[in-house]
């Protein structure tokens, strides 16, 4: 079922046999103007979607790199209201699908109905909520459905016995957090076999080799830390570095 831009891009990529490239970055890290600039640079250089982390005071599911980005963004005054404004503004310039990664308390406190209505109004296509497992999904599912927003599910290597259950009920794409070493590809194959929707694998590091090793086992890659690390390193100059990184990754992925 086509809900929004994300579905359109998922279908386009599938039809074209193109592996998806979806970078993550923390919204407001370095200021909203920088976030906007980076998203546009990545969109122009081959990113198929963007996951925007909503800064949170206590990001329990985040690795240290993203924790620090969240702290920097909050210290810089980033807010959910600011993120909505930025995306609305961004929608006059790009159609790249945008998914928010955020903690359940942000949605709950904002008001579930109002939150998803606002997502729709601003042009956000999906949410990923790391502290809302399958068993608690109906906390938000009806509200997300009513607004036509994907509530994207996640599976990890620790999801043994749960992958099918989660995949059957998943929306948009299935996000797979695979271990960097060892049986990462085995786990991805299991997810791929269980899911009818595209399987997007996490690549935690900026190592293109690993990204490429994963490609045969999934429909795309979510770069969870590469861009965040660039922001940490280059600050206000990140857009250029991000454009270059995405361009290189895109070319390498298309070559394979």
């Amino acid at each position: 079922m086509i809900k929004n831009r994300l579905d359109t891009v998922l279908v386009q990529c599938k039809n074209a046999g193109r592996k998806m490239l979806i970078p993550y970055l923390t919204a407001g890290d370095g200021g909203f103007a920088l976030t906007e600039e980076i998203i546009l640079a990545m969109a122009e250089n081959g990113a198929d979607g963007v996951v925007l982390g909503v800064p949170f005071s206590d990001p329990i599911a985040e690795a240290p790199v993203a924790q620090q980005a969240s702290e920097r963004a909050l210290a810089g005054g980033a807010s959910l209201a600011g993120i909505f404004d930025m995306v609305k503004q961004l929608r006059t310039k790009t159609d790249i699908p945008i998914v928010l990664m955020l903690y359940i308390n942000t949605i709950f406190r904002t008001g579930k109905e109002g939150f998803f209505a606002k997502c729709k109004e601003c042009g956000i296509e999906g949410v990923m909520v790391p502290d809302m497992p399958f068993e608690e999904k109906d906390e938000i599912q009806n509200f997300a459905d009513a607004a036509g927003i994907h509530n994207i599910s996640l599976v990890t290597a620790a999801s043994e016995g749960r992958i099918k259950m989660i995949a059957d009920d998943a929306s948009g794409f299935l996000y797979c957090v695979a271990p960097n070493q060892g049986d990462g590809s085995v786990f991805l194959d299991q997810a791929k076999a269980a899911a009818e929707i595209p399987v997007i694998a996490e690549a935690e590091i900026s190592d293109l080799e690993l990204v490429l090793q994963r490609l045969d086992h999934c429909d795309g890659i979510l770069l969870s830390s590469a861009i965040v690390e660039l922001v940490e390193k280059y600050g206000a100059e990140t857009a250029e570095a991000a454009a270059l990184f995405v361009k290189k990754a895109r070319a390498a992925m298309d070559m394979q």
């Binding site: 359940i104 497992p133 399958f134 068993e135 999801s159 957090v177």
Partner: peptide, 23 residues
Amino acid sequence: MSKAGRFGEFGGQYVPETVMNAV
């Protein structure tokens, strides 16, 4: 869907997928 461990509207199991099997 099971609503384990509720005290009225409070409680629940709002934890990352990584720990669901452990929980």
